[in-house]
């Protein structure tokens, strides 16, 4: 599965969820379910790049106190609508901001930080900055849950992914004149930021990964 087409979807947010379901062969829901299984009631949760709020929704349903940030106001509108349509009291706060403004949050102010398909949109410098900030604003032993598209370490799998990707890149270029990137060396960067990967799960082709990262050492 590839997520190149998410650019197509980003410019048409109202079709985003349907598109994601098709692209991931219906797996995205399960991946996100598994990723958020550790979230408990009254946890303070930060969703970085919440998009249409798929992860925000899961956290909110568990009774967590969620702060969801995204730079795209159209996406935020959809996420807000999704939460408002729930016939349940939830505690969600939406903010239009990017990772560059993570420094506005207090130290150790979150129990759990989640991020789905957002880091692959960032530049290397932004990822380094974001990871440093996450390590600061996440409480000690807090969890950072990450799901994203990656570049496989195996040559053969990379070739296969490459062939799957090319037609999708062309289609998304024609439709939206944009493309997405894959994450390189995210695991090394996480470790360099002083956090520890507790759990890692990826699919067979190694183009998608879910990570549970623990913020063990405080600087």
């Amino acid at each position: 599965m590839s997520f190149v087409l998410m650019k197509v979807l980003e410019s048409a947010p109202h079709r985003y969820d349907k598109g994601m379901k098709i692209l991931t062969l219906g797996k995205i829901g399960k991946v996100y379910d598994a990723l958020t299984e550790d979230i408990k009631e009254n946890d303070t949760v930060l969703d970085i790049g919440c998009g249409t709020g798929l992860l925000t929704l899961r956290a909110a349903l568990k009774g967590a106190l969620v702060t969801a940030i995204d730079i795209n106001p159209e996406m935020l509108e959809i996420a807000k609508k999704r939460i408002n349509e729930l016939e349940k009291d939830t505690s969600v706060r939406f903010l239009e901001m990017g990772v560059a403004e993570l420094d506005t949050f207090e130290e150790s102010s979150f129990d759990i930080i989640v991020s789905g398909l957002c880091f692959s949109e960032l530049s290397t410098d932004e990822i380094t900055y974001a990871l440093d900030q996450i390590s600061r604003i996440l409480r000690e032993d807090g969890l950072f849950l990450l799901a994203d598209e990656i570049k496989s370490k195996f040559f053969l799998k990379r070739i296969i992914n490459w062939f799957i990707r090319i037609p999708l890149v062309i289609i998304s270029y024609i439709l939206t004149q944009t493309t997405s990137r894959t994450l390189k060396n995210i695991e090394e960067q996480v470790t360099a930021a002083g956090m520890t990967i507790k759990f890692r799960k990826s699919n067979f082709l190694e183009n998608f990964v879910s990570l549970k990262i623990i913020n063990e050492v405080k600087k």
């Binding site: 730079i71 560059a100 403004e101 410098d125 932004e126 900055y129």
Partner: peptide, 15 residues
Amino acid sequence: GHLNNHSVISVIKIS
């Protein structure tokens, strides 16, 4: 909307 406030804030703070 591709070159927006966030692109500028990010490059000022992170570069």
